[in-house]
């Protein structure tokens, strides 16, 4: 899985924002707020990463059990798919 071209994550005023640039503006003209974990996962997905890779990284970075990590990742990836931000 990989974040689509044209969607960028930036840290502004203590917040993580995703905005569209270039051609992607035609698809999405809003602003998405991510929390810290969301931003962490997003950065992995920018480079391309599967759910197992996300889970391993999350378990290494955060104090979280495996079931919770898997559930959080599934929910996050679902949201990205719904918003058509991921291929």
């Amino acid at each position: 899985m990989k974040i689509k071209d044209g969607f960028i994550l930036r840290e502004v005023a203590d917040s993580y924002l995703v905005v569209a640039v270039g051609e992607a503006v035609k698809q999405f003209n809003g602003v998405i707020n991510l929390n810290e974990t969301g931003a962490f996962l997003w950065k992995l997905l920018e480079k391309g990463c599967d759910e197992k890779g996300l889970k391993d990284a999350l378990l290494a970075e955060y104090d979280v059990d495996e079931a919770t990590a898997a559930a959080d990742i599934k929910a996050f990836v679902e949201k990205l798919k719904e918003a058509d931000l991921i291929i």
Partner: peptide
Amino acid sequence: PREMLPVVLNQTLRPGEVAEMDKYLSIVD
């Protein structure tokens, strides 16, 4: 700043290209 951010993002003109977007977000920050 975090509470005001969405207000400012909605009441300013956001550019469409990445170089300008970075300049814009840096100014807002």
